[in-house]
């Protein structure tokens, strides 16, 4: 029980002190889980991280579940995952409640009109970074263009595209391998 509580608190600290999650969380994870607690080795953490990136869900939650699982089985995974989201839950609730109360002020509306432009810039910047990692040959470029245009003009759930692209990825990799032989 003490171990579960420790997992929850440690991941609370990691979640509450990293901005942006995902990649930004790595240094905190290294310090807390490898150096301070000795729960996992550096290599294990890297493995968790790389699998956490390509399984569904938020990378931080995935990595937390992995570490928790290693330390204290299924319950450990659940406690670590709950810990990493707990600060978000509290902070965002407070901000959302405050914003709702002030949303009708002109200054707040003008500020958010400006912020929305800033957000677009941030998104474009991350898209450029992600694009370089994901679009690595002509096949992934074709996939990108097809999904982009379809998603833009056809109003269906993105789930369809995710499933179709996963299947296409398997087929293309298989085909490429056969051709190489």
């Amino acid at each position: 029980m003490k171990e579960l509580f420790d997992l929850f608190l440690t991941f609370c600290r990691i979640g509450g002190l990293t901005f942006g999650g995902g990649y930004a969380m790595m240094p905190m994870l290294q310090r807390e889980c490898v150096e301070k607690k000795g729960w996992v080795t550096e290599n294990e953490l890297m493995d968790y991280y790389s699998v956490g990136q390509c399984t569904p869900g938020v990378i931080a939650v995935n990595t937390a579940t992995f570490v928790g699982n290693k330390v204290h089985g299924v319950a450990g995974g659940i406690f670590a995952a709950l810990g990493v989201v707990f600060p978000s839950l509290v902070i965002i609730m407070i901000i959302a409640a405050v914003l709702q109360a002030f949303a009708h002020y002109p200054a707040v509306q003008n500020a958010f009109a400006g912020i929305r432009v800033g957000v677009c810039v941030l998104i474009i910047n991350s898209i450029i970074k992600l694009f370089k990692k994901a679009v690595i040959d002509k096949w992934t470029l074709i996939l990108f263009i097809v999904v982009f245009l379809c998603a833009l003009f056809i109003d269906i759930t993105p789930i369809i595209f995710v499933v179709a692209a996963g299947i296409a990825g398997v087929l293309i990799s298989n085909w490429k391998e056969k051709k190489a032989k």
């Binding site: 400006g114 998104i123 992600l130 994901a134 982009f148 998603a151 993105p158 996963g166 990825g169």
Partner: peptide, 26 residues
């Protein structure tokens, strides 16, 4: 193989969402 395809689709979907966000901005 699945993730080779998935990553490209994921960036494409985020790009579509970005186009919509830009459309809604000033």
């Amino acid at each position: 193989g699945a993730f080779y395809g998935l990553r490209a689709a994921s960036v494409a979907l985020i790009s579509t969402a970005a186009v919509n966000a830009i459309g809604e901005s000033v």
